[in-house]
Design a protein around this nucleic acid. Structure first.
Lengths: 203, 203
DNA sequence: TCCATTTACTACAGGTGTGTAGCATTCTGG
DNA sequence: CCAGAATGCTACACACCTGTAGTAAATGGA
């Protein structure tokens, strides 16, 4: 029988830096989706990607920069999806109609890319600082957009800041419900509730 | 000059087990409040309490049981505070009046014991499993109570489950706002927004 | 006062993660 | 075909955490 000889690990496929970086970002996202932000480490990412840690260090300066880069990528995807689904140009329209169009659109958006949205919605506070600051910053930008919508519809009299916080909190939570149990929390139910709340407000 | 001689660590005050346990729970809560659930470990708790790890192990069987005990204690405090502030017996009353009494009460409750409430509100998902399951369980119980209130007020026709989710999400988020910036998000503003939402619904 | 009990500490063995230096392999262009 | 540049791996030095066995100090009652 031959020597045990399992001395050297088989070489991972050689890959140019740019591609390796993408692959590592994908690995990080997979871990976040499967194990939460707790599970993310240089070590875990290397294992997930089938390489050793120095490979990761040669592609990124550490966990913080890696996650920042990942967030850059996901941010672009998420905000594009979100602003496509939000009724940004509906200044004068009937609010009920607007809401009853936007709600199913948001529902579909979340289910169409659950990995992206889970990483954003199911992450609120106890995550690495880089990530938290980034997500909070984006959330604040979205909230400002909603606040403008509120002002546009209700005028200056309402407490638009607090209302926008409330609306975003509702959207967040309904998003989490959809991700957690899509069969239970359907577009119809959510649209029904949000629609009747809107009707109550304006009718 | 005397020998360096800093061989032995000064003894921590000797304390009976029951008291030590309380002290360790307080240390854990302090850490959670300051560093989040990520920072909690047997080691960190021992350091925070000014003792060594074996002391912690002699008081609890490990981190899980310690946190469970802490949750038992905090749960009692929190639910007592919450059900005192919630209008559980207001089945027939005017909803607007009920809400305008309950909102300032909840606001005061959160600010009166911010450490307890931060640990509950600012913790949603990425926390030790024992803690998450526990908090989620309690949240679900509270949500069920709210659902009953909704049914009592709106009847069976409404989608009480989803509405209760929405209401709890609003309460959660407004609680976080108050904890994050008490000067900005006052009882008056929150009561104003919640009151006008309620008025819109029922008027 | 002295000893048994209670309480606390030291020390060790083992696990996982970080970051880096130096070596091995593969690939590419002349 | 054969450098040298890319790319990947091994190995090491730390750091921090878990649990536990053995030892030292404080306390209280006989």
């Amino acid at each position: 029988m031959p020597e045990p000889a399992r001395k050297r690990r088989p070489y991972a496929p050689r890959v140019p830096m740019a591609e390796r970086r993408e692959q590592l970002l994908d690995a990080a996202l997979t871990i976040i989706d499967r194990d939460g932000y707790d599970g993310v480490s240089i070590d875990a990412i290397a294992r997930e990607a089938g390489v050793t840690r120095p490979v990761v260090y040669s592609a990124f300066d550490g966990l913080g920069p890696l996650l920042t880069t990942l967030l850059d990528r996901q941010q672009e995807r998420a905000l594009a999806q979100l602003f496509a689904a939000l009724p940004l140009d509906a200044a004068g329209d009937d609010p009920v109609a607007v809401v009853e169009r936007a709600t199913p659109a948001l529902h579909a958006m979340v289910l169409a890319d659950p990995v992206t949205w889970r990483a954003i919605l199911v992450s609120p506070v106890t995550v690495p600082d880089v990530v938290r600051d980034r997500i909070e910053g984006d959330r604040e930008r979205v909230r400002a957009v909603i606040e403008q919508l509120v002002v546009g519809v209700l005028g200056e009299s309402a407490d638009a800041e607090v209302l926008a916080h409330g609306i975003l909190a509702l959207l967040d939570h309904f998003g989490r419900l959809v991700l957690a149990d899509p069969g239970r929390f359907t577009a119809e139910r959510l649209t029904g509730v949000i629609g009747s709340m809107t009707k109550a407000w304006f009718a």
